[in-house]
């Protein structure tokens, strides 16, 4: 019996994980159905676009510019060890567009947007506002989840695009101001080196990460426990799940786009 108990625990853990995956998958499918079918709530969608997209621009911009600048410094210092300092524009561009741009924007969105969505919806749940929505003939997923996920699917790729450009600009500013690069040559090398595949992969990653971030916020909020502790757990769980899923999805998408 003692030998079997670890196996039992492993079995229970596997079942728990699979049932959680199933619940999230059903939640995602229902959300997609609510996004595509009427009634639509344009005011809620506009509000979510503003909250998730526009108001995330400062944090995304600051993250990207500092990351691009630091990347330029690191590549220059590392490249100098084998006389390859000249590759700074190319590596900054590829690093930002393929990986750092989407991943850092995704993680910043998980920190800023996922937490906020989860806390808001969980509070609505514990104060019976979700029940009130139902009694007012309004489906909570259609009113709360669909607009937020749709807004994230639209705005996060745009934020990633903006983050890529600002990150490259951060590298450009450091390289031309501190490292002695010629501005025109730096820009030419950046543009020449980037391929359409890099840009498409960046935007697709943004779309997927945005969807994950908003979906996790909504899922954990809707399934929150009672009281302040329930709201706290929902918020923490949503950010953890979103961050891990974003990093895992990034690995899979990088494999899809760049495994030669």
């Amino acid at each position: 019996m003692i030998l079997l108990s670890p196996l039992g625990a492993l079995g229970r853990l596997t079942l728990d994980i699979l049932s959680a995956v199933g619940r999230v998958a059903i939640f995602a499918a229902l959300t997609l159905r609510h996004i595509l079918t009427p009634p639509f709530y344009p005011r809620e969608i506009a509000h979510a676009l503003l909250q998730i997209g526009w108001l995330s621009l400062p944090v995304v911009g600051l993250t990207a510019i500092f990351t691009g600048g630091a990347l330029a410094l690191q590549i220059y210092a590392g490249g100098a060890r084998f006389n390859a300092e000249a590759v700074v524009p190319q590596i900054v561009a590829i690093g930002m567009v393929r990986e750092l741009g989407p991943v850092l924007v995704g993680l910043m969105i998980a920190a800023r947007v996922t937490s906020s969505i989860a806390a808001e919806i969980a509070t609505m749940k514990v104060t019976e506002q979700i029940d009130a929505l139902v009694t007012l003939s309004t489906h909570p997923m259609k009113y709360l989840t669909a607009p937020r996920v749709l807004a994230a699917l639209i705005t996060v790729p745009l934020l990633v695009g903006v983050g890529d450009v600002i990150g490259i600009f951060g590298g450009y500013a450091v390289a031309t101001q501190n490292l002695g690069f010629n501005p025109a040559t730096y820009l030419k090398n950046t543009v020449d080196f980037l391929e359409m595949r890099d840009i498409v992969s960046s935007l697709v990653k943004g779309c997927v990460f945005g969807g994950i971030a908003a979906l996790m916020g909504c899922y954990y909020g809707m399934n929150s426990g009672r009281g302040a502790q329930g709201v706290g757990r929902a918020t923490k769980g949503s950010v953890e799940a979103a961050a891990v899923l974003i990093l895992a999805a990034n690995f899979l998408l990088t494999g899809v786009f760049f495994s030669v």
Binding site: M124, E128, A132, T135, L136, T138
Partner: peptide, 28 residues
């Protein structure tokens, strides 16, 4: 149906009149 909830369950993000008229601003 209409329902008065124990804690009010008013929507924090909406002004009072939009809370009261919630059903009249959307749906059938």
């Amino acid at each position: 149906f209409g329902m008065l909830f124990q804690g009010g369950a008013l929507f924090d993000s909406l002004p009072v009149w939009q809370n009261v008229a919630f059903r009249l601003l959307r749906g059938s």
